[in-house]
Design a protein around this nucleic acid. Structure first.
Ligand SMILES: [Mn+2]
Ligand SMILES: [Mn+2]
Ligand SMILES: [Zn+2]
Ligand SMILES: [Zn+2]
Lengths: 126, 126
DNA sequence: ATTTTATTGCGACAAAGTTGCAATATTACA
DNA sequence: TGTAATATTGCAACTTTGTCGCAATAAAAT
């Protein structure tokens, strides 16, 4: 499963990097120059996630958002995204907050994925 | 918009109370004795949320889960559910953990809804 | 240049949730 | 108790989100 470099891949990555936020499939489709199929976008994004370049958050609206990994260990196995995300109910932006959050779970519980989202009004909209 | 007491309402509430966990629409439908329409279940649950009897969590699988409000102020306006939820990747249960979590947001941000989910393996499954 | 196979586009599909509308059941009230 | 007002339900239709199979395309290796 070697990865190949394609126009779609690079453009999506540029869009994510330029934005700095977590973007939904739709947001990405809007910001991409060339028309790109929905399935393709999802496949590219999921591949990025596998490769540890990108991480995914599911909003309290049920939608998936994808953001570039910032401080992640390059080791794809254990990049823990235990930081908070903020989704603005007004403008729709989803930001990765700096806040890393370590939650002590009860005995016997094993954490695999953190999906922490607070929604409200962002700095610009409040 | 006065509420009326119906069989569906009470049965759903019983199921939620008996479970103690956060249940998806499907889980509720399975545990209810009488056949009940999907739309009806959602409508009942959403009404419960409006009334402050129940709160909703969206899992990292994009699905909605509903749980009885435990320590909520009866004042429907401001019941803050800033506690963590744990979803087991094995058995599928979603629990409300006791952990109340107050996150200091950056200046200018206003929090409205907390949707905090950690998924992994629960006590029984790990 | 040719082969190999990762990637794409398209269509079909499934699942989750919502909504409109007519039928039904609950509550209020005469 | 009987009737009117309206909240609730069931059903079907629909939207949205995301996935998958398959044939066509394009990147990399030879
Ligand atoms: Mn993030
Ligand atoms: Mn809860
Ligand atoms: Zn905003
Ligand atoms: Zn479990």
């Amino acid at each position: 499963m070697k990865r190949r470099s394609t126009a779609s891949k690079e453009e999506i990555l540029e869009v994510l990097a330029a934005s700095g936020n977590a973007l939904s499939h739709e947001m990405i489709q809007d910001r991409v120059s060339s028309a790109m199929d929905r399935a393709t976008i999802y496949r590219v994004l999921n591949r990025f996630c596998e490769d540890g370049k990108v991480h995914k958050v599911v909003g309290d609206n049920g939608k998936q958002y994808f953001a570039m990994c910032a401080n992640c260990d390059e080791k794809k196995q254990l990049h823990s995204h235990n930081h908070i995300h903020f989704r603005c109910l007004q403008c729709g932006t989803v930001e990765c907050l700096k806040q890393a959050l370590s939650v002590p779970l009860p005995e016997g519980y094993v954490a695999k994925v953190h999906n922490l989202v607070i929604s409200g009004f962002c700095k610009a909209c409040s």
